[in-house]
Simulated assay, not measured.
Amino acid sequence: MNNQASAVNLQGGVAVITGAAAGIGEALAREAALQLGMKVVLADIDEAGLARVAADLSAQGASLLTVATDVADAASMERLAAKTREHFGSVRLLVNNAGIETLGFSWEIPTAQWEKILGINVHGVVNGVNAFAPAMLDSGQPCVIANMSSIAGISIAPIQASYVMSKHAVLAFSECLHLEMQMKSANVQISAVLPGPVKTQIFECIEEQLDTVAAEHRQQMMALLDTNGMSAEAAAQTILQQLSAGKFWVSTHPEMTQMMAEQRARHLSSLATPALDMESAFEADA
């Protein structure tokens, strides 16, 4: 993959991670605090989860700030940015990680659930950039904004249309944002993070009632993660290494990402009728 390569020293800096109460966000927080010595701001709407992660990391000597945050609410994200600046100062790494999954036929997903997933997965990323980017630009110091897309951002899938749509949007936003940052400043690196199968609770956390088809799909995806997924800890290490190396395209499963990107490119270049071919991609990292 063609990638930018201007290294950023994250060691000892300030990291803000949304969705830090579980999954990849929690693993990123642990890696940043304990291995990179970063001062970490834990942001999540799950206050109990935040308290659990913070208590464990604090006991290991990490320097932390926890802020209950609804990423879908612009005012909440602005409060997060203000509290971060007041407590720790300039931010070196912002990871717009918070995200949820929804399963079901698109026309059967309630409007409120559509609004929720787009509010968190898409507007949450935009709100994070709006809240933090101005000060990061003004700092003049090398820093990173990492937006959590997914290999779903370069693929298509039934029953997961709302999630796939949101991750396509995050990727397109990140690409445009990279170009804008190049016009304004060289100090703010933009990275699009495209995790492959990682063992998290994202499918277990789905709240809505599922019909038979969606419920079966959920079980299949949970089994796929259990069989092929890397640990969240390994994913976090890989992600932070690539962010430090200055990469725009950040992947936990490079061969899988490359194959799926090539499949998507062929599909678009030939204007082919949508079709699904997941098995060959998953075989790439087997």
Rank of each mutant, 00 (worst) to 15 (best):
N2M: 12
A15D: 01
V16A: 08
G23P: 13
G23C: 11
A43R: 09
V53W: 02
A82W: 01
K83V: 05
T84N: 09
H87T: 15
F88N: 04
G99L: 10
E101H: 05
I109H: 12
T111C: 01
K116W: 06
L118M: 14
N121E: 12
G124T: 03
V125Y: 01
A131Y: 02
F132V: 04
A135R: 11
M136E: 02
D138L: 14
D138N: 14
Q141S: 08
P142V: 08
V144I: 15
A146C: 06
M148R: 01
S149A: 15
S150W: 07
G153P: 10
I156M: 13
I159Y: 11
Q160L: 15
M165S: 15
A172M: 11
E175P: 03
A186H: 13
A192M: 04
L194W: 02
L194E: 03
G196E: 10
G196I: 09
Q201G: 07
Q201C: 00
F203D: 02
E204Q: 13
C205H: 14
Q220I: 14
A223C: 00
N228I: 03
A232N: 03
E233K: 13
S244K: 05
A245M: 09
F248N: 06
E255H: 11
M256S: 12
A261F: 11
L268F: 12
S269Q: 14
M278T: 08
E279W: 06
